[in-house]
Design a protein around this nucleic acid. Structure first.
Lengths: 101, 101
DNA sequence: TCGATGGTTCGATATTTTTCGAACTTTGGC
DNA sequence: GCCAAAGTTCGAAAAATATCGAACCATCGA
C-alpha cells in the first residue's frame, strides 16, 4: 500500500482545509469524527460506493484534517485536533459549533 | 441591473463560505477587505480580466461574505463582518489570523 | 489456504468551476 | 449627446472534482 500523503502540522494549507470542508459529506465526516473520536470508513459512509467514500477520506487526509491508522483489516480515522488547533487556532471549534439548520 | 443574490445572515451556508474561501484569490480579497474596509473591484484585481474578477466577487457575494454598494459608477465592496460573526462566531477572526507562510 | 471483509486504486464519464473575450449597462464628465 | 470608466452578463472552452464499477491488496477467521 502506498504511503498516504499526510502534511505536517506546519504544512497544512488553509485553502486545502476550506476546500475539504466545502463538501457536505466531508464536513459531516469531520463533525462525526469530532463526536465519535475514531471511526472506520464504513461506519461513516452514507450509502455510497466505497470508491467514493475512499476518495473523500483521501481529500480529508491530504488536507491534513484526519489521520488514518491500521487496525487489523480496517482503517480507523481520527481528527487531527491538536495539529489543526496549533496551525489554525480556533478553526476547529468554530467549524464544529457552526450549525446549518 | 439584476439583483445580486445576497443571503440574509441566517441563510449563510457554511459550505458556501468554505468553498468561497478555498480559492487563493478570493481569500486574498477577503483579507484585504478586512484591512482596507471598503474597496472597488479593480482596486483588488490582480492583473486578471475583469470578467474573472467579477466572477470571484460574485462567488463571495452569493456566499454571503461581502456586500456591494453602488458609489457612482464604481461598486464598493465590504466584508459583512457582523453578519458573518453572528452566523458563525469566531470564523472570521480565525480566517484573518490564519497565516499561510 | 480459501473466503469474506474493508479499503485503495484505476479509468472512464459526468458535473462543477474557472477563465476569458466580447457585448452590454450604468454613471459621471465634457 | 457622446465618450470613457467600472462592472456585469453571456457563451464557449479549459481545468478541476466527483462518481462509480471493476480490479486489486491486506488482514482475519475458519
Amino acid at each position: 500500500m502506498r504511503h498516504a500523503r499526510l502534511p505536517a502540522s506546519e504544512e497544512i494549507a488553509i485553502e486545502d482545509v476550506f476546500h475539504a470542508l466545502s463538501d457536505p459529506f466531508r464536513l459531516d465526516v469531520v463533525r462525526r469524527l469530532a463526536v465519535e473520536g475514531e471511526a472506520s470508513c464504513q461506519a461513516l459512509e452514507g450509502d455510497r460506493p466505497k470508491s467514493s467514500v475512499s476518495h473523500h477520506f483521501r481529500v480529508l487526509r491530504e488536507a491534513g484534517l484526519i489521520r488514518t491508522r491500521n487496525e487489523g483489516a480496517t482503517r480507523m480515522n481520527a481528527l487531527r485536533r491538536e495539529d489543526i488547533e496549533r496551525r489554525f487556532p480556533g478553526l476547529l471549534s468554530c467549524v464544529l459549533s457552526a450549525r446549518n439548520d
